[in-house]
Design a protein around this nucleic acid. Structure first.
Lengths: 203, 203
DNA sequence: TTTGAACTGTACTGTACGGTACAGTAGCAG
DNA sequence: CTGCTACTGTACCGTACAGTACAGTTCAAA
């Protein structure tokens, strides 16, 4: 889609940097052009407008962000400790991605504009958080058929516990949790997840 | 602070409507003035600029939003069913507030601008989600001293389970959960909360 | 009736924006 | 050399914005 040294690639790289720093509304095409080098006319040759350029960088960014999570192996060996250790790795990788500076800026931007560009929010959810939840669901379904609750419900509950309020606090600029707090939160998420009720409590 | 029929009150009401609809950057003071009636000079008599007006409406809005949650009684009678029913009421009220259209717009706005106005995000957290968590913490601490985990950790875990991904999906414009899904989510949150491990799993 | 403060309406300044026009250049293919 | 395409630099258009200036109006208190 965007060969490494191409003009289009340079424009997208510059747009990512400027949009992430200032958000959609406060970003001017002139600033992107200054950072990318070359002429503003070239930007308008590749993208029909600011909005189209914005949509393109969201796609690029969400793919970049989910990459570390995709790399987490979800191939269980069936042992009893395996579920806990997989959840620990996966949960921690998930939390680390959520709390990255770039990720936070991306979430802020997409949420802010999803009122005006509803398709953008849906695309972001499908390719980002939705896909992560689907991966965990698939793992739970195929390898740990459990008690009494659908795996998709379990997956979203585990991810909610792993996020806890750390994501919200980071998004609001309150603070960004350090490694120790992340460990604690994920450990608790696993403990609560594993202790969940076994009968008559789903649906 | 803002007497009902006063000019200042009219300006804030108008600003709330316009900011909620368009976000901070895309809102012009002229639009607020058109909606409030009167003159732009009057707005600048009460507020030193757009940013100060924005900060004022955030304070007003967060107070409005938390009101329905404040009204939920957190006065247990000590029976066994009481914890579950209190959590059900509180959790549902909390979720209902989060999924209101106005609340979603407020969250989007504050998140979008908390990069540029960090104090704003902190104020919003302290007066909004932080205060709700503190209320639940206090309830858990004083009336249901439980197993092995600090009440503040328990409170944020319950609220995370109650939110699940419904808030995120609503913020991104994917969909807004209906009453049935809200009921299911809160019920599950309670079930998982009540089944949480009793020993050696906190910290 | 006078005084004074709150308020209005309108016009204005300076700046910045998204987007376009256009003349010109670099480099490559035939 | 010719032709073509990608690209550059700069100037420009129309619009919209935050914030100010100012002359005039309302209205209540003294």
């Amino acid at each position: 889609m965007a060969p490494e040294g191409s003009k289009r690639h340079r424009i997208i790289e510059a747009a990512i940097a400027v949009f992430l720093e200032h958000g959609y509304a406060a970003t001017s095409v002139d600033r992107i052009q200054q950072r990318a080098g070359g002429s503003k006319a070239t930007i308008y040759r590749y993208f029909h407008g600011k909005a189209e350029l914005f949509a393109a960088i969201i796609e690029t960014l969400v793919a970049q962000m989910t990459a570390p999570i995709d790399r987490q192996p979800l191939t269980p060996d069936g042992t009893t400790e395996e579920l806990a250790s997989t959840l620990a790795r996966f949960g921690r990788a998930y939390l680390d991605v959520l709390l990255e500076t770039r990720s936070l800026a991306l979430y802020r931007m997409v949420m802010a504009e999803s009122g005006r560009f509803p398709e953008l929010g849906k695309l972001f959810y499908t390719r980002g958080p939705g896909r992560v939840a689907a991966q965990l669901t698939e793992y739970l379904r195929s390898h740990h058929p459990p008690a009494d609750c659908a795996p998709d419900v379990q997956a979203r509950e585990f991810l909610s516990l792993a996020r806890a309020d750390l994501h919200l606090k980071a998004l609001l600029g309150v603070d960004i949790a350090g490694p120790a707090e992340r460990d604690r939160t994920v450990s608790r998420a696993i403990a609560v997840f594993l202790a969940q009720p076994r009968r008559n409590h789903c649906r």
